[in-house]
Amino acid sequence: MSVPTGTVALFATCINDMLFPDTPKAVLRLLERLGCTVDFPLQQTCCGQMFTNTGYFTEAMPSVRNFVDTFGAYEWVVGPSGSCIGSVRDQHPMLAKRLGDPGLQREVDAIVAKTLDLSEFLVDVLGVTDVGAYFPHTVTYHSTCHSLRVTKVGDRPYQLLKAVAGLTLIDLPNADQCCGFGGTFSVKNPDTSVAMGTDKMRAVLDTGAEYLVAGDNSCLLHIGGLLSRNKSGVTPIHLAEILARTEDDYLVQADGATTKSGGAR
């Protein structure tokens, strides 16, 4: 394992910051446990994806500029989201180029090279797959399209999950199929989105897993919303929250509730 000397910037992502604070807390705890120095620059906001992918390029530009201003000075930028990291790496260069601002383009290109999804940072930079986590539950993993096809995290999340003590991982059928979230697609095409999500939910239920784990809380917001509405009893959870837990947590909370996150997403 090789811990970087510089400070790692935590890019929480707007949705996690506001709706899923347990996830960035888990990232922080995990990275500090592994010896990293982590900072959360308060100027951070959003990757701008919801604007870009809805066609509002002009409206996405403040987010792009703010991203380079906020994170430009750090050695690494790490976020718990294949989708938001993918947006920074895939769409920020396109937006900067369209704007015809070579200065911004250079800044964006420089930041793209050091912006990583949590699973990439753990496996590629720190060089760990066993992060010392303990999670005595049955889980199934949803790969999420942008983790898979934009950020291309590959099998890193599987490597990390397989090294978690106590965890039983069950393969999700049709794992590479979209859950139907798709950002604003979920409200612009709600019926199709729900139809896709229902099929994903069925696949999740077929596994019999207690937890549905993913590297993106946005997809979990959607699938979790369906799981909750249908009283499925399956809890959505971010990969980081599993990796952050150690045996000590369970010792401390031996007869209390062992899970902090839960309910509707």
Binding site: F20, T198, H222, G224
Partner: peptide, 13 residues
């Protein structure tokens, strides 16, 4: 068709 998680009373920020 989908429930929505209630925003927590304290953001990460």
């Amino acid at each position: 068709a989908r429930d929505l998680k209630k925003p927590p009373t304290e953001t990460f920020r």
